[in-house]
Amino acid sequence: MTSTGSVAAAWLRPITGGAAPLLSRAGQVGYAARRLSELVQGRPPGITGHQWSTASKEGFDLVVCAADTGWPLFALQIAAPAPAGSAQRAERMTSAVCAAVGLPVLRVESPTLRGSEHGRRLVEYVIDARSYAAGTQPDPEGGDMVGFRDILGRLPDGRRGPVNDLGALTRAAAVEAFVERRLADPIVRGLHVQWADGPAEGWSWVEVRPGRCLVERVQLFAQRFSCGVDPGRLAEDLAAVAVGERLRDLQVGEPPLVERDELRQQIRRLAARRDEFAGGFAFDHLWVD
C-alpha cells in the first residue's frame, strides 16, 4: 500500500462500508463525491477554525483508496477556474487542510471538463501511468526509456500512434469533421508550460472556420502527487479532450471562436513570460513568422 506518512496516519480516515466504489484498478478503488470532512478526523494542527469550517464542506469528484484498507491515497477535483473572491479563498483553505494531513490532490481547472463525465477516465489513466512508471526499469544499455504517454499502438481511427494520448479521440473526430467539411483544418494543435512553483497549463485548439479557432485551456495542479506522466503534456491532452467536447456543439450551433491572429498574440504574450516557467518555453514556432 502507498503510504501518505505519519501525519496522514494520525488524521486521515479510511473509507469503509457504504456505497460501492465507482472503480477498481491495480489494487486501488475510487469513490465518487466525497467531502473532505469524510476523510479527515477533525481539525488538524496548524489549521484555524475558520479554515476547517470552510474546507470541511468542500468535496472531491473522486477519492482513490487502497482496496485492502480503504486508506485514502489521493483525491481528484475537476472544477471551473475559481473567480476571485470567496471561491478562491475556499480553494486555498482546502489546499491548506490537505497539505496539513498529507493528502495528495490532483486538481484540474477547466471551463468545459466535468468530474462526473471525465473524472473516472482521468483517475484510471493516472493509476495506469503511475503503475507503469513504478515498474519501468532503466535501459541497461543507456537507451531512452519509453514513457507511458509515448507507448505506440493502434489508434481509434486505425492509424499507429501514442495509445495513451487522452486527446486521441478528439484528433480522430477532428479529421472526420474536416472530411465532412465542418472544420477548416483537421489538425488539433496545442502547447503546454509548467509554471514555476505553480500549475501545469495546457492549451489546445482547432481551426473551425478559416482564421477562427476553437480554443481550450486547462490548468493542472498536482499537489504532493506524481501523475506518472509529464504534467504539462497531461494538461495539454486534457485541453484536447475539452476541444472534443465542444466539437460536438458544431452539430447544433457554432461555439465561441477566437480569431487566429488573436490566438497568436496570446501565445506571444505567454512566450514573453518564459522566465516564469520551469523548463522554459518550447513553442515559439507557433507564433514566430
Results as ranks from 00 to 15, higher is better:
146 V>R: 11
146 V>P: 01
149 R>E: 15
151 I>H: 09
151 I>R: 14
152 L>N: 11
153 G>Q: 09
153 G>P: 04
154 R>E: 14
156 P>N: 12
156 P>E: 09
157 D>C: 06
157 D>T: 07
158 G>A: 07
159 R>G: 12
160 R>E: 14
162 P>M: 02
162 P>I: 03
165 D>R: 13
167 G>K: 03
167 G>P: 03
168 A>F: 01
169 L>P: 00
169 L>N: 12
171 R>K: 15
172 A>Y: 02
172 A>W: 05
173 A>F: 04
176 E>I: 00
178 F>R: 15
179 V>F: 11
181 R>G: 01
181 R>I: 00
181 R>P: 00
182 R>W: 02
183 L>G: 06
184 A>Q: 08
185 D>V: 00
186 P>C: 03
188 V>I: 04
188 V>M: 09
188 V>R: 05
189 R>I: 00
189 R>F: 03
190 G>H: 06
190 G>S: 05
194 Q>V: 02
194 Q>W: 11
195 W>P: 00
195 W>G: 00
195 W>Y: 10
196 A>N: 13
199 P>C: 05
199 P>Q: 10
202 G>A: 06
203 W>G: 01
203 W>Q: 06
204 S>R: 08
204 S>L: 02
204 S>Q: 05
205 W>V: 08
205 W>C: 04
207 E>M: 09
207 E>V: 09
208 V>P: 07
208 V>F: 08
211 G>P: 02
211 G>W: 11
212 R>I: 00
213 C>M: 13
213 C>Q: 13
214 L>N: 10
215 V>H: 09
215 V>A: 02
216 E>C: 12
216 E>V: 01
217 R>D: 02
219 Q>H: 08
219 Q>G: 00
221 F>T: 03
222 A>R: 06
222 A>W: 07
224 R>P: 00
225 F>A: 08
226 S>I: 00
227 C>R: 05
227 C>K: 04
229 V>C: 10
229 V>I: 07
231 P>E: 07
231 P>R: 04
233 R>N: 09
233 R>I: 01
233 R>H: 12
233 R>T: 06
236 E>P: 00
238 L>K: 01
238 L>R: 01
240 A>S: 15
240 A>Q: 13
241 V>Q: 03
241 V>L: 08
241 V>G: 05
242 A>P: 04
244 G>V: 06
245 E>W: 09
245 E>M: 05
245 E>I: 03
245 E>P: 01
246 R>H: 04
246 R>K: 14
248 R>Q: 10
249 D>H: 12
250 L>G: 06
250 L>F: 04
252 V>Y: 14
253 G>S: 10
255 P>V: 02
255 P>H: 09
255 P>R: 08
258 V>G: 02
259 E>K: 08
259 E>D: 15
260 R>W: 08
263 L>S: 07
264 R>Q: 13
264 R>A: 11
266 Q>D: 11
267 I>T: 07
267 I>W: 08
269 R>Q: 15
270 L>H: 06
271 A>E: 10
271 A>K: 04
272 A>S: 15
272 A>C: 02
273 R>W: 01
274 R>T: 10
275 D>S: 14
276 E>K: 10
276 E>M: 11
276 E>I: 00
